[in-house]
Design a protein around this nucleic acid. Structure first.
Lengths: 235, 235
DNA sequence: AGGTCTATTGATGTATACATCAGCTCGCCT
DNA sequence: AGGCGAGCTGATGTATACATCAATAGACCT
């Protein structure tokens, strides 16, 4: 009963958001309001509304008289966003180390255990999912709902690009070790250590920037061919 | 020519945003779309659009079938937001200490000088304004545009409540001393010190939480009388 | 008299038609 | 043939009318 009767615009927004985050719509791809309206059997008004909300979220961009596209984030801004993401995660860890409850600590240990199981099984998809749960536990344990919300939002916004890092398997071992260190720090209430470890944990993924940037550029190239009539002025 | 020809919705959004931030519209106050439409000579569509953008910014809340109101942030969430604000400011300071350019450093010193002048003159309004410039310099000097944007946005969102702190005059002296420490830390590239000082600089305002919370509660009370269903004597 | 059911009201949500304007194309002029 | 300009096209932006639904207030029943 929480939100069963949401408006068409909200449902459409969620659907599009999910499509973008899960890669069914790739950055740079065009969005046709009329086609979406037909697909969901609604008029242009709620479609437009949904799109505007996504624009506000930074997931899509609309160029007047040119069209609406799934947002393409430049490499420079992507780096900036990862930098902020690392800070937010670190802050969550620092606060969690001071404020975590017994229940939350149990949930965190459980999440860690699931990560270990997934890593042992070599199941990268499962690890990816459990890794999210693990981090989300820390967000919640920060006991700062606003911070948690911001962290989740930024994470979602980065998700379409995180997908590009294919070497999850190679990272699983190291990631898991870091997770253990993070849990240990939080258990012992060592706020600064938890913050530092988490911050690096997030930034390490950006360490292989050579591979990462290459992936992004590749995406840029293919996407450019799709949406833009010609070279798009980089936004 | 960058944005001279903005849409009606954009202009209206900016106008409302300015009204809210500058206190002409107080939290909890009602917004009547039709009245706004008449005032700006536009139909309900762009009004609705502007309101939705403000909702996305967190400045306005809309309850279905009840009305749209200027967002009222609960005390608990307000504290959470200040906590995050302090972290963002601290991060800006840390990065600025490493990355600031000569021009930016000059601008920062200039802003500090203006703050000193305003403090010496006892002009609280001027100090308020120059204080903003000072902090904005640090945002820019972080060389992380995304971070700077987030910091500015959150600051705006907090602005209607910051106004409640009446004791700016008493704070001017201490604030100025902290500003000097911050500039010194950035000049010498002491990132951690700059971060720490800035973080505390922001949090100190929340130190007088007794007064602050009292002010918020007072606002809450008066605003509740305005918008709530109870009051039907004046429609 | 008190409670409940129902009709009204007023708000948001949606559909549709129109206006506007930039980019593209095609054709004209040089 | 090449550059340039006017018209066309298709996109977003806006206006208006209608639908929907919850909160409210009134009247009816108990």
């Amino acid at each position: 009963m929480s939100s069963v009767k949401r408006s068409s615009a909200q449902r459409l927004r969620d659907a599009l958001e999910d499509d973008i985050i899960n890669g069914r719509l790739t950055p740079g791809e065009r969005l046709d309001p009329e086609a979406l309206g037909r697909e969901f059997s609604v008029s242009r008004t709620p479609v437009r509304e949904a799109i505007q909300q996504l624009v506000a979220s930074g997931l899509v961009t609309v160029s007047p008289k040119k069209g609406t596209f799934v947002a393409r984030i430049g490499i420079d801004q992507l780096i900036e966003m990862f930098e902020v993401m690392a800070e937010l995660e670190g802050m969550c860890g620092r606060l969690a180390a001071r404020r975590i409850s017994e229940e939350e600590l149990a949930a965190l240990r459980e999440a860690l255990a699931r990560c270990e199981a997934a890593a042992e099984a070599g199941d990268t998809d499962e690890y990816y999912y459990e890794n999210e749960t693990f981090h989300d536990c820390i967000y919640t344990a920060s006991h700062n709902g606003f911070l948690a919300q911001e962290a989740r939002q930024l994470k979602q916004r980065l998700k379409p690009y995180r997908r590009l890092q294919l070497q999850v398997r190679q990272r699983m071992g190291g990631s898991l070790a870091e997770h253990r260190k993070i849990v240990a720090a939080i258990e012992q209430g060592e706020a600064e250590l938890a913050e530092q470890t988490l911050r690096e944990h997030v930034l390490i993924q950006g360490e292989r920037f050579s591979d990462f940037i290459a992936s992004v550029k590749k995406l840029d190239a293919s996407a450019t061919r799709l949406d833009a009539p010609h070279d798009r002025t980089r936004a």
